[in-house]
Design a protein around this nucleic acid. Structure first.
Lengths: 246, 246
DNA sequence: GCCCTTATGAATGTCAGACAATTAAAGGTC
DNA sequence: GACCTTTAATTGTCTGACATTCATAAGGGC
């Protein structure tokens, strides 16, 4: 039973086989936790060697579409894509997209804050005392003068994640994971250069206060000001660099 | 030179090797278009067989991190992650996440429209005549009574993509690709059941008109009403199903 | 000297067969 | 019944071979 796609034998056999199985999974013809045929059976079905089948399965495993188990009654199983897996894939992809495509700081910054502001109304309405406490804890950490730059950045990311999560919509959290996390490298560039923690902390405080009062408008304003401030810092850094190069 | 990670030899060798190379790429130790050592060289460096190296490389290829070229002076090269590749990965992941995790219609719908509303202010400010024309063309198509359900859904997706793209921020477009496209299966469920094209077309028209006037508030309102309407339809479908099961 | 054709070699793609490692289940022992 | 042993199925890894592709170099005709 060859998969003779009439038109395009451009792809490797392993890519074609992976594609066939992927389609079966995405279209729901194979359900979660269903076992795939063994490598030997697949190689017979597709009329290829076991190595080729294995390469195809590794491709699928890399996308968390399947998991494998050794031993008797082991094999490859359709994997339930967890939020955790989806998050990390999202973050890797976003990070690479930004670092490899000469995306301007303005564009990335705008995308990030636009998405975060989208969460503000929901977060203001639904924020729990717990999520608010998380945010305030991060702000307290950021206020410590002896905090390393790395730790400050990590805390910054944690705070923004807490804001997103406060919206109480896991799908939204997943979609924004990339936007928030992938900005960290760019944020580092700024925080390490311009000393500006007080201003950032004060804007973070304004944001937390707004959520505390369940005031969506104020939260929106705080995020707008944070974006404007970040943008200013970014431009300063760029200007300094351009100057140095000269 | 074995990669003896002291603690966790739980992973396959091919997964470990893929991880090592992935880290090198993500951390920027390997730059775009740089050539990896040949499979033979890698197998010597890592002290494994060529098959194992190949499986590792296929994993990376599945994530679009590398591309391979046959022939003399061929090999594996660090791939520039294009927006197109990132889009399709995003869509696959989002679709699977939704279909495999029993996400409620309400949650998915809320996430989608929250994200789209985030684009509204930018789209209202920056929309070109071109992007507006695209939207109106899709609306015209949706008004044809003899349009198949499949084509109507596809047109719906195209219109929403046009809205997102009108914001003129490619990073934002990428982030929203999953939200818009992954909803199609769920939207199908509704459109195929409830006959409601007139209402949808009228809301789409209101949206396009608002963008035409560069009126962000009106666009926001239109999206809110579209969300509310979609939600009503979804609930009806659910209720009907529950009734049938009984 | 210039262009076309033909080797050449390096690399990936594919195959076949073997063995190691793992694991659940069946069977045996007490 | 509890514990140990065997067994069989399956993935993981290795080895060696051959097929295929393709840029470059070499050669030949003019």
């Amino acid at each position: 039973m060859k998969t003779a796609s009439s038109a395009e034998p451009r792809q490797d056999l392993s890519a074609q086989i992976a594609e066939a199985v992927r389609t079966a999974i995405v279209e729901g013809r194979m359900i979660v936790d269903e076992r795939l045929p063994s490598e030997a059976e697949l190689s017979e079905q597709f009329g290829v060697s076991r190595s080729t089948v294995r390469e195809a399965l590794k491709r699928l495993a890399a996308q968390s579409l399947i998991r494998t188990q050794r031993g008797a009654f082991g094999g490859a199983f359709v994997n339930r894509l967890s939020y955790t897996d989806a998050y990390s894939q999202q973050i890797t992809t976003s990070t690479l997209l930004l670092s490899m495509n000469a995306v301007s700081f303005e564009t990335a910054c705008e995308a990030r804050y636009t998405l975060e502001r989208a969460c503000a109304p929901l977060a203001a309405r639904r924020r729990t005392d717990d999520s608010l406490a998380t945010m305030r804890a991060e702000i307290a950490r950021q206020s410590q003068p002896d905090l390393s730059d790395e730790a400050f950045c990590a805390s910054d990311v944690a705070l923004h994640r807490a804001l997103v999560d406060a919206a109480g919509n896991p799908v939204l959290s997943y979609q924004l994971a990339g936007a928030v996390e992938a900005m960290q490298p760019l944020m580092n560039m700024i925080t390490f250069t311009a000393r500006s923690r007080e201003e950032i902390v004060s804007l973070h405080t304004a944001l937390a206060d707004a959520l505390g009062r369940k005031d969506a408008t104020a939260a929106n304003t705080a995020l707008h000001r944070l974006e404007a401030y970040t943008l200013t810092l970014g431009r300063d850094v760029m200007a300094t660099r351009a100057h140095k190069r000269k």
